[in-house]
Design a protein around this nucleic acid. Sequence first.
RNA 1: GGGCGGUUAGCUCAGUUGGUAGAGCGCCUGCCUUACAAGCAGGAUGUCGGGGGUUCGAGUCCCUCACUGCCCACCA
Length: 1080
Amino acid sequence: MPAKNPQENSRNAKETKREVPLNDAPQSAPGTQLPKAYDPSLIERHWAERWVAERLFEVPTLDSDYHVTPRRPLGGPREAEKGRANAFTILLPPPNVTGRLHMGHMLNQTEMDILMRWHRMLGETALWVPGTDHAGIATQMMVERQLAAEGTDRKALGREAFEQRVWDWKRQYGSAISDQMKRLGVSVDWSREYFTMDERLSLAVKEAFVRLWEQGLIYRGAYIVNWDPIQQTAVSDLEVTHEERPAKLYHVRYPFADGSGSIVIATTRPETMLGDVAVAVNPNDERYKEAIGKLVTLPLSAAAAHADRNIPIVADEWANPEFGTGAVKVTPAHDPNDFAIGQRHSLPSLLIMDETAHIDLPGSPYHGLDRFAAREKIVADLEAAGLLVGIHDHKHAIALSQRSGAVIEPRLSMQWFLAVNKKPEAPNQHNSTGAPSARGADGGDEQRTGAPSVRGADGGDEQRPGAPSELRSGGKEHSPGAPFMSDRQGAHGWDERNSIAQNAIDAVHQGHIKFTPEMYTKTYMEWMNNIHDWCISRQLWWGHRIPAWHCPACHGITVSRDTPTACSACGDTHIEQSTDVLDTWFSSGLLPFTVFDWPNPTPDTGAPLLTPALAAFYPTSLLVTGFDILFFWVARMIMLGCHFMLDVPMPDGSPRPLAEAVPFREVYIHALVRDANREKMSKTKGNVIDPIEIIERFGTDAVRFTLASMASPGTDIAFSEARTEGYRAFANKIWNAARFIFMNIDRARAADIEVALPTNSAPGGPFIERSEMSGGQKKLVQNDPIPVPNDPIESRWIVARFSQTAAAVHSALTAYRFDEAASLVYQFFWGDLCDWYLEIVKLRLNFDITAEAFPTSEDSERALAAANTALTTLVTVFDAALRLLSPFMPFLTEEIWHALYSGAPPAKSIALTRYPQASDFPADNEAIREMSLLQELIVTIRALRKELGVPEKESAPIRLHAGPELTSHLEFHQDILDRLARVSEIHISDKPLTGANARSTTSFDVAVVYARKIDVALERDRLTKELAKLDKQIAANEARLADTSFTAKAPAHIVDGLRKQTADLITLRDKTRAALDSLS
RNA sequence: GGGCGGUUAGCUCAGUUGGUAGAGCGCCUGCCUUACAAGCAGGAUGUCGGGGGUUCGAGUCCCUCACUGCCCACCA
């Protein structure tokens, strides 16, 4: 619990009484609504709940989405058709249902939310689909831990009870992460929230599996896989991490069976030697030429098998003469390379370990030993037998299970694979009622097309068609509104179809998917070009069960959408469903289309695959994610999305081109969030930052802003609390600016002035017209820019600065530069609006008309009119600035925006207003130039006064020597100078000013008239230093200007710029020297 | 073994076609200036990791070295 200071406590006490005025009833005095200090805890929860309750961000699928008129620009090629006009769609990467929100989620979701809110405010149909993932291994582990605490385990429970237990767990805790997301204010469509094990999604997963099977892309076979002995399941290559560890290399003597000598092999894993079936040497290795073909007696094999086992010496290129002894033992069942050698030499495979990596050789002295204990015993026994030649230190990259940390045991086992490099075959005839289809019964081996996991088991080099076939010859036309094609044979002929990997390559290569940062394109391509078949089966209990049934009688496999009653091969009724479940990433890889109702839930009615939701929202616009799941998820979505969606016709009935089959058009990949010391956050290190805890201390808005401002592409984020503190201060700043404005609105109303709040009918009005809150098409209202012809300089300037800022924010967001966008808004709000504009506008906000200050009624009326105009500009700009900020700080801006409209806002939420555009406001460069001169003058005077020791409250006259640009407007700026720099009088001087109380810039000399108290020594130091700097720079500039190659080759504007700069520097140098001289 | 990043102020980081370096925090000084002390005003701070090259000109492009992080990989 962070300690609260007393001030906060008293504030809280006050706040709790505050009624939150919603848009129910107009309030008359907005100024009274905002408490004195910004306290996010008082506003955020309220709005978070309200946004959900109001269903603000729901985007229903409309019937009309089905019938989209194709758009064909005259004369041009057919454009990619987008179902719902202006749709901007994002699929939220589903967090694990077991998960708790971490900083990575928060960064990810903040970025997406900024983009969603931005696009929504641009008038697009912004749909963001949330959901959670069942996360097979992670969830199963979690519940197993729970069981362990209760002194039981899943096996004792049994499969069904265990599954039930997980569901209970899910029902109880599964909403935790969604609740946390709501706390972040994510503007997702909660009505579309899914869970990957939902019935509908489960059906889709099954459908996808069956289709792939029918297309010959799924096969079952015995291969070496990465076996996790703790989880007791196969895991994919991606789920394995490697870690360099010191290890031993054992040299073991294998005697020739004929007693003629021996050969010494080198191994890191002596415990597997009981599974050896050969020794391999390189055919070109002179040392062993003679030995090839001989038999060796496998040491210790008598103990294991009650008789000596003799194994051959084979020649294989894989054996490296440089390594170890040049001879390697071959254990096909426990090593991927050895498996490959075994395949090449038709050697048998001997499985000597069970699922828990204990030696499984009944009767042998090693039976039941853990593999590491077995290693020790075997080494000892070898030594005793005099066969251990030596032990050498050896660095070794050891394979670990990412999830459980177990040392991976490569293990021969029967698994299911997805053939990614094979072209799909035309599915066997099959009827839509889902009759079982069957596959051959021979152990599944015959279908190998590309080696899974391991290469080398032939077939891995399946040729990949080079260029994608043209999608369709031009002749075929589909009239709009024609009946949708039947999906079953696919929109494209099967002979035209590419392999899954090839589609995934083409989609990116042809530019249908764009990566940001771009470098990930290369990473992706590299991986996809070297991809192996994907092991999709897991020996878990929690997940989508594989829809395949084994027949004990004939060993046939029946794959079916519906539970079959008999083996499709032999008709035997005693069939059993596979106990395996699918890799979690298989189901999440389907999400971009399954969340949009693929396949149509009623296939037996012949309903088309194209669902209204797919027509409206597929492909999604963007995927925002971390690079850690680039291969796990991003690549799989591309693979599966392209593959399946090619079969789904376009809304106009035409075949879907690859460009429209992609799951998303763009991928934005962000960095990892690390702790302040750049360490990766991990539970074991205990440096995990809990976003909710940070949020409670600083507010969601401040944390969001921190993440956004640090999210520059390509680099990791070292999360810094100091930054967050700063952005909470920023929020407070805005809060107080609002209070200032409300105070003035109150004062204006007290003076009987009607305050003009921005409305739709007003110029520059900020709102999107919506027919209804949900589902209605939004329409942007293009407003005329606000006319500000004769307004005072600060009005013209702030409006112009806003215009610049809006333009810059737009381009920053377009390029996913959240950091730039955030700092632009920050700079505008704090630097421009608060520091300068608000201070100046105070001069105009004169609502308390006293007879003293305004003797005539004309005077007071003019003052009131000026005040009113100023207030209008102030409110208009502030309102626009709130909207500009709202995607970044949705809570704060929502609260203030509602207060601004006194509880009667023109929309239910600021999130439904229009995002400010640069074109809403005039770009007034003149005002910007004029104002910067004025600012420069003010800053110079302030500095000078400070050095002269003029008390802050005391006014002093100045003398000024300046060009016409500054002096011509000076009379209008006197009050500003007075207010911001305490200038009582301005004396214009014809002559340059020097001396201790004068300062010079290239544009002017200014002197503060004040009894000199300056520290002469200090000033001399300062001037001397400055003089040296100027001299140096002038010398450098002059040298360059004297260089004819520079003046000849550099562009004119650079040379001219340098000339002017040098001239300015010389002026300044002369002034500085004069000032220095005058000191002595 | 391959590949990709990073190295800029005390700290955390920006720096988009090469034109001579910025922000926030921190630090120093002075201010309770009626929106805000979570504030205001003023101030100090860099051989842009080292070296070489291209160029009139390099934080920015090329080479090289050093340090550092990450990804991929079947070497017993």
